[in-house]
Design a protein around this nucleic acid. Structure first.
Lengths: 166, 166
DNA sequence: TATAATCCGACTGAACTCGTCGGATTTTGG
DNA sequence: CCAAAATCCGACGAGTTCAGTCGGATTATA
């Protein structure tokens, strides 16, 4: 699953599309501006997302991207798998580290972890992320104690942040 | 947490030490031979494991490494954190991708995932991995239908194997 | 026909990872 | 006291991977 910044960008971009997809398709230029991701990079990502069947494209002027199915039916796992192609699985599946024909000591451990992570990300829908963003917005508006231009989010460097490079 | 092969090797090596640690300390030369990991690399790993307080070293001839505490009290998370030092957490903790002073759309998602993975690995003790290895051994001995030299473990390429590059 | 947009493959600079190497230090045994 | 066994340590390099760019092709609109 690999969990690189590419996957993170893809999820962010998909949320953006889901939030702005009324009738008109959403152009990558808009996403680029809103999310501060370079257009070229977005093109690369959405090529994969389209091939994976997560978005549908409309070419030409007035075109852009639509979600291929309702956001409630798209999971984060879907997005990441689409974008961060699995590398060669020949790590522990073959004779690489598994020594002398035996399954290596930790095989089951990593397999279990994989299943765990996958299940977690599979359980998070795009819709739920959109909802979360909306409720954050609502919360911020209901308590506008400072001018919006100066509001800086307080940094909260989670103890767990370094894990997985997030 | 990063989950690289370095972490995997460290876990494997720790299992090996736990399984062979009677009174005498275990030398890295033995671990190297049994687990097919280069000695130099093991030295590098065990330097970190020692600094993290997971193993204790005995120098000079007859020396080697002992577990610093009972294997039931060492988790996989401990080992991986000791070896795969956290990279710069400046991914989402600051203003990098979080744009315009707001928390980026996916912040909570990744934080939750981290916590999830960490909890999982925290729940797996070194002892449990040793037990699993022992029961695999017992199973293989109890059904010796073929000469041991020819027994090849059947490959079972899990569907989830590509995830995380395991 | 000009323009807005997706589409695509190749490429590069930078970072990171794996693993090595040479040597220093400590301790045991003869 | 000395040789050998072992840990200890920092630096380095080859290879790989990743993030992001670039130039241009294609498609559709107006």
């Amino acid at each position: 699953m690999k969990l690189t910044t590419k996957g993170r960008f893809a999820v962010t971009a998909m949320i953006d599309v889901a939030m702005h997809n009324a009738q008109e398709p959403v152009t990558l230029a808009e996403v680029s501006e809103r999310q501060k991701i370079s257009l070229s990079y977005l093109e690369q990502l959405f090529g994969k997302l389209r091939r994976a069947g997560l978005v549908a494209s409309v070419r030409g002027p007035g075109g852009g991207y639509n979600l291929a199915r309702p956001s409630a039916m798209v999971s984060v796992a879907d997005i990441i798998v689409a974008v961060d192609e699995p590398i060669d699985a020949t790590r522990c599946g073959g004779a690489q580290n598994c020594h002398e024909g035996e399954v290596c000591l930790t095989h089951d451990l990593w397999a279990g972890l994989n299943a765990h992570i996958f299940a977690y990300l599979r359980g998070v829908s795009l819709q739920s992320l959109v909802d979360a963003a909306h409720s954050r917005d609502a919360l911020r508006k209901s308590a506008p104690t400072k001018p919006a231009t100066v509001v800086l989010q307080e940094r909260r460097p989670s103890l767990l942040a370094p894990l997985l490079g997030v």
